[in-house]
Computed example of a mutant assay.
Amino acid sequence: MVEERIGEIFRRAGISGSLHVTDVDAPAREVAVRADESVVIASVFKILLVLEFARQVVAGQLDPVERVLVRAEDRLGGWGIAGCSDDVEVSLRDLAYFAMSVTDNTAADLLLRRVGADVLPMLAAELELPRTRIVGGPRQLVETMLADVGARTEAEFARIFPTLSDERIRAMRVLDPAHTTSSTARELTRLVALIWRDEAGPAAACAMVRELMARQIFWTRLAAGFPPGVRVAGKTGTLPGLHLEAGAAEYPDGRRYAIAVVARIDGLSTRRIDVDLAMGEAARTAVEALRGD
């Protein structure tokens, strides 16, 4: 069975994971491996964030070219403008681009302030994602991490973190689905499928999200598993010991598949190419099973 093959892929890479893959246009056709387990989703929440931004733009509530000044006190660690040394001025639309393409936490935090943090739980409820919970944005998660290790600043956190035991790190709230932003693999594929079917909001808003997800630069997870000619769009999430991605694969024959893969590993590394490649292999294995039905 395909589930057994996926389990073997996970075992070879030392993964304890969950997976859900469904045909976008025939959702009853699925491959599920522990798909209903609650999981931390980390930066994958940015799909909901950018979707809400796109919906507000299409509704005329936000001007996508509105300018935002990013100052030193706004910056969180990470990629994109998060790593800039000087003040930067960008549009709301470019904040959405940076948040999705390079998982820029500063961009996501500023965009969340503009769309309204209280709106995302309501959006999840509207889209019938009852087990998807949003607990603040990147800044709230960073503040939680600092508090959990007793650090006052990010620099102090960077000094303390390498000295912590694995047990202490795994006890942090940011790694506990009950205390942080979380969902299930099944609900993540539902979200992706709704966006790909233009059912998560106006068609123009869904198209905007699809285009931004296709511009993600990280290719070693889902995208690595598929052959040339298959268009893969997605959003990664990464925390110590946790690798995940949700997205879609579009084949030249027009068939489309929503995919979510969550990989938990014994170690706490965030750079495990073997784990990333196994995620892509598992995704492709599930999709090929659906295509062969």
Results as ranks from 00 to 15, higher is better:
R5P: 00
G7M: 06
E8T: 08
F10Q: 02
A13T: 05
S18F: 01
D25V: 01
V33I: 13
R34P: 01
V39A: 05
V44Q: 04
F45P: 00
E52C: 03
F53L: 08
R55Y: 06
E66F: 01
E73I: 06
R75E: 09
G77I: 13
A82K: 01
G83L: 07
E89F: 07
L92K: 10
A96M: 13
A99S: 15
A99H: 05
T103N: 14
R113F: 00
V115A: 02
G116Y: 11
M122Q: 15
L123A: 04
L123C: 09
P130A: 13
R133Q: 12
P138S: 15
R139M: 05
Q140F: 09
M145Q: 15
M145L: 14
L146D: 05
A155Y: 07
F161C: 07
P162L: 13
S165T: 15
S165Q: 12
I169W: 05
D176L: 10
S182T: 12
T184Y: 03
T184G: 07
A185R: 08
L188A: 09
L191D: 03
L194D: 04
P202R: 03
P202G: 02
M208A: 15
V209L: 07
E211K: 09
M213T: 02
I217F: 09
F218T: 06
G225H: 04
G225D: 01
F226H: 03
K235A: 07
L239R: 05
E250V: 15
A258T: 09
A260M: 10
V261S: 06
V262I: 13
R264V: 03
R264H: 13
I265E: 10
A278N: 06
M279P: 02
A282D: 05
